[in-house]
Simulated scan of single mutants.
Amino acid sequence: MRVTDRIGTLLGDDAVWSADHEGLSGHVSRVTSAAGVFYVKQGPAAAAEHERLRWLERWASVPDVVAFDGDTLVLADVAAPSLESAAPPHIGTIMGRALRDLHAVPIAECPFDERLDTRLARAADRVRAGLVDPDDFDDDHRGLSARRLHDRLIADRPATEDLVVAHGDYTPGNVLLPSGGAPVLIDVGGLGVADRYLDLAIAVRDLGEDFGPAAVADFFTAYGLDAADERKLYYFRLLDELF
């Protein structure tokens, strides 16, 4: 990963870079130096995340932005484990409360659009560019091509959207749990106004697979949803396959 002189000076000559990781916010590296520990992201998605972090810090706990230069974003290390790695006994409750608080942010305040028109158009671009790997699909979608899956999303699109400020990739790995502090939201490059099921579907999928049905039940109770729309849960899980 090449960085500007300003970022290089900030990180220091003794900086040790980890191997890159791939996420929705672009390439991610962990950098350790005498100046501290940082996470460095690069690319158009990192620029999108920078905008969202600057906006979201008014409403939720997020990592501190140390610098942004060119298309390179430098974040301070929160020094806290994710819910995925910490696996606290009440993980569903923690995730449900944090998401309830995020979804309570007034949508009129949010300048970022992640409604279905936007997401489906972006998904179509990814399919045309060959950026979707069907080998990564969930087991019940194996054998479908990316184009066939997109066609199904168009045909089965919900008639209405229940709009909130959505995280966009709400998984246990993207919620950090500082000791004695509020949960910290990371990887927010896809945040914007969207159907609440964009977040609910991914949270339920990951909680169910990794922590079991009790965690899902706790999640819904803490979030405040008595009866989930199963069709929407499935639809937005299907949509996530293209990202």
Rank of each mutant, 00 (worst) to 15 (best):
R58N: 04
L233T: 14
G208T: 06
R142W: 01
A123G: 10
D162G: 06
L75F: 12
V16I: 15
F243G: 05
S85Q: 09
A98I: 00
N174G: 02
G180N: 00
V127K: 12
I7Q: 07
V127H: 11
G70D: 11
L225Q: 09
R196P: 01
P111W: 15
G130Y: 11
V216E: 04
A166V: 12
V127A: 11
R97C: 05
D140E: 09
T160N: 07
A47T: 13
D138R: 14
K41D: 00
A228H: 14
D117M: 05
A86T: 01
F38N: 01
S33K: 09
V62R: 01
Y234W: 14
K232T: 07
T171A: 11
A146H: 06
S61D: 06
A228P: 15
G96A: 02
D199E: 05
D226Y: 10
A129R: 15
E51H: 14
P213A: 14
T221Q: 12
A146M: 05
V105H: 09
A86R: 15
L239P: 05
A228T: 15
V65D: 01
S18K: 11
V184H: 01
D101T: 11
A159S: 10
L200C: 02
G26Y: 07
R157A: 09
W59T: 01
P178T: 02
V105M: 06
A19L: 09
V184I: 06
S29T: 07
G92V: 15
T221M: 06
D77Q: 08
R128A: 12
A34P: 04
L163Y: 08
E57I: 05
Y170W: 13
D139F: 12
E49D: 00
A60N: 00
W55V: 01
I91Q: 05
V31Y: 07
A166L: 10
A87W: 05
F137S: 03
P81Q: 02
A104R: 15
H150N: 07
V216N: 03
R54F: 00
P88Q: 03
E51Y: 04
D218K: 10
L238Q: 12
L238P: 00
R147S: 11
F137H: 05
P88H: 06
V28S: 07
L176C: 03
V28K: 00
G189H: 04
T9D: 12
M95L: 10
V164L: 02
D117N: 09
R126D: 12
S25F: 00
K232P: 07
D169A: 10
F236T: 04
D135E: 12
R100E: 01
I7L: 10
D14F: 08
N174K: 05
A98K: 12
L144H: 14
G181C: 07
M1N: 06
